[in-house]
Computed example of a mutant assay.
Amino acid sequence: MTKKTMITIPYARQEINEADIDAVVSVLKSEFLTQGSIVSAFEKSVADYCDAKHAISVNSATSALHIACLALGVGKGDIVWTSPITFVASANCALYCGAEIDFVDIDPYTYNLSVECLSKKLELAEKNGKLPKVLIPVHLCGQSPDMASIYALSKKYGFKIIEDASHAIGGKYKGELIGNCRYSHITVFSFHPVKIITTGEGGMLLTNQSSICKSISLFRSHGITSERADMLQKPAKEIWNYQQIELGFNYRMSDIHAALGLSQMKRLDEFVTKRHIIANNYDQLLSNLPIFTPFQNKDSYSSYHLYLIRLKLHEITKSQKQVYEDLRNNGIMVNLHYIPVYRQPYYKRKGFKVGYCPNAESYFSEVLTLPMYPALEKTEQDHVIKILSKVLEK
């Protein structure tokens, strides 16, 4: 008797077509593989799409977050705040600069940084003389936080804002595309393979301020400039066609990666539309199960990088871990986004305790990430629901 092959459905997957492959092959046959005209074209494409003045590509969103902090002057003695429900890079970037990190609890509905918790924490920090230099709100799953309210608080308390929109290219806030930096100094996107569009590995910083753009560009490429006006020494008898004027990094994106990104930009809106169709199907198909589906703020149009559910544990007989393992054992490769950053062993050694952010703890104990990517077929989605329903049966 032949054993039936189990269907395996990943939580995410990139979508590459022949046009993407042709774009990359074209660069491989060209004169420039590193930083040529394709990098500039990709940057312009993203800046124009988001209606931002400047876009600077880098080799990852982690690199982008690092030099975003540096460009805003983050250093030793400074404090940076972010959400605990994010990938560790959103917090690590402050530590790379020698600054301290702290966390603001999440909103129990959107799972983004809570404006109410932020306001209370700022009020207390002002009394204690420990206000943050920079706040990094995260666009979890592609849904924008309440950026207008966060921006208003930044004016009151004097902190700068880096939007970690790694999940959110193609999303909107108050009818405008995320990335226009209307409510921030810098916005960061990620182009990792599981994100909305991909460059293989890569990231992008957007800003409307020329001085910030100039600083980011320096940090991206070893702190070196070839602009004579920026050079600090100008000897008459020696050749100085470049100078290192800052301690920078090799965070540049190559033309090979940019070619894939530029090609994918042509399908960005299509990808987001498909994700909304899948999310709407999930909303309907899951309505009778003991779970909470994602809440969508009326001011937000999510790019739906992730589709999260929260288990109503009081209505089922299994634990979150049991549901997670049962689904994966049945070929549904669910994931968990995210473990609160301060619960990681490295951050616990810095003094953070379990329970530091109560809303984040509650979220962590109930959340699971279901498969979500543009190529997910309706039959595959039905299979996910079928297995999930069986796993949740009493």
Rank of each mutant, 00 (worst) to 15 (best):
L327V: 12
I186L: 01
A55S: 10
V88A: 14
K378P: 01
Q284Y: 10
E315D: 09
S303H: 00
I162R: 05
T207M: 13
C97I: 01
Y109W: 06
D51Y: 05
N112R: 05
A152M: 08
I67P: 11
L135R: 05
S57T: 13
E31C: 04
N329T: 14
Y109G: 00
D78E: 01
S144R: 09
K53N: 09
Y347I: 07
P145D: 07
S210D: 15
V39D: 08
E361N: 07
D326S: 15
Y324T: 05
L28V: 11
E238T: 15
Y373I: 01
K121G: 05
K174W: 04
L72F: 12
V323M: 08
G202D: 03
A12S: 13
I150M: 08
L285I: 06
K172C: 13
C117F: 12
K274L: 12
A19L: 11
I291S: 08
S389Q: 08
G129Q: 13
M6E: 13
S114C: 11
M372W: 00
I387G: 15
V334S: 13
N208C: 02
H276T: 00
T273R: 06
T110A: 05
D105Q: 00
R310E: 15
L113E: 09
K298W: 01
M204T: 13
L289Q: 11
A55F: 02
N280V: 04
Y304T: 03
K321W: 07
A41K: 12
K53T: 04
C69R: 03
L286I: 11
I9C: 07
S154N: 07
T187A: 14
V24D: 07
L135M: 12
I56K: 10
L308S: 09
A41P: 08
V25R: 14
P235G: 00
I332K: 09
M147T: 10
D283F: 06
D107E: 11
L285K: 14
K121T: 12
A229P: 06
K390R: 10
K348N: 03
V354Y: 04
P358K: 02
F292R: 07
L118K: 09
V46F: 05
L311S: 10
G200M: 14
S144P: 13
P137K: 02
G158E: 10
Y324S: 07
L95G: 03
S263K: 01
S302V: 00
Y251Q: 05
L388H: 11
C117P: 03
Y173G: 10
E116W: 02
